[in-house]
Design a protein around this nucleic acid. Structure first.
Lengths: 157, 157
DNA sequence: GCTATGCATTGATGTACATCAAGAAATGAC
DNA sequence: GTCATTTCTTGATGTACATCAATGCATAGC
């Protein structure tokens, strides 16, 4: 477990890397994302304080995610082996599965407006800290679409 | 750990249930799914032989998923507590996270055709065993759209 | 200060997929 | 076997969102 200090913009891991690490965020904000064959970026997860950010790829296979720092961030880095040895936090794992399940259900059943509303409720602190285009990327819509959703919601009030 | 025999069509768990169980499939096929506010069904997961099917909801909260048997199925049922006590299979959990991650990335970056092709590659045995409309529901598209994708693919050969 | 770069918004147009409706084919009940 | 139900397909139409392009605002570099 090594503590490192990543300046805003630092790339910690790139798609295709084999030795994927696990990043425990102490302060700041990380993000993990892919870039698809069409060159489009899709944010998989934001990692604020106390989050564990990692690619879930199988051991010894190239990982799928880029991970970088959106803010100056202090992180504890470990290998997966280290983490497994010291007995991982089961509850955290289960919570993680719950989060993923919610995300999948949301992606399958909600439209742009519903996704945005869900996001603002679930991550009220993150929305202040990242550009809207990243929120859009996380939600699976374009910045333009998000802008229009927000416009529409602000009028209704 | 109780062994039960679920006839095709049996509903094992419904959305809103509190005491969500864990189902280890011995033979047959389960499926877990939600129904959204618009009444639409979305398949979250298929559970063939040796799969663990469960709602990942937090303990003591109403779960989100229905679980039923698509074929006559033999299952071992346990509570989450039981499973946690006897030390869960960490590798299985990590593999599960990997699967979820892939699903999320696919939902965000692939169109109907790509999703279908990915599914046939990843689950070649399941596609034979379920009606196409369930495949469509798993992929997050309508049966009509799936039909057209398949038509288009068959012509290209 | 000025200029360059990135971000958000707005409008015009395009498109992938949904929805609706009808018919054909397969499956199941009895 | 026959009838009913479900599944799959096909066509016509609708719509949510993407894409493309232009503009206004910030912010950052120097």
């Amino acid at each position: 477990m090594k503590k490192i200090n990543a300046k805003k913009g630092t790339l910690l891991q790139r798609k295709g890397d084999i030795s994927s690490k696990v990043y425990l965020v102490e302060s700041g904000l990380l993000r993990s994302y892919t870039i698809d064959e069409k060159g489009k970026e899709h944010i998989y997860m934001f990692g604020p304080e106390n989050w564990l950010v990692a690619d879930n790829c199988e051991p010894n296979t190239p990982c799928q995610l880029f991970i970088d720092a959106i803010e100056d961030t202090i992180i504890n880095v470990a290998t997966k082996e280290e983490l497994l040895k010291e007995g991982p936090d089961l509850n955290a794992l289960l919570r993680r599965l719950d989060t993923m399940q919610n995300r999948i259900i949301m992606l399958m059943s909600s439209n742009a407006k519903e996704r945005y509303e869900h996001f603002t409720k679930t991550y009220p602190n993150i929305i202040q800290r990242v550009p809207l285009k990243m929120v859009a990327s996380y939600l699976g819509i374009t910045p333009e679409a998000l802008s229009r959703v927000r416009h529409q919601l602000s009028k209704k009030k």
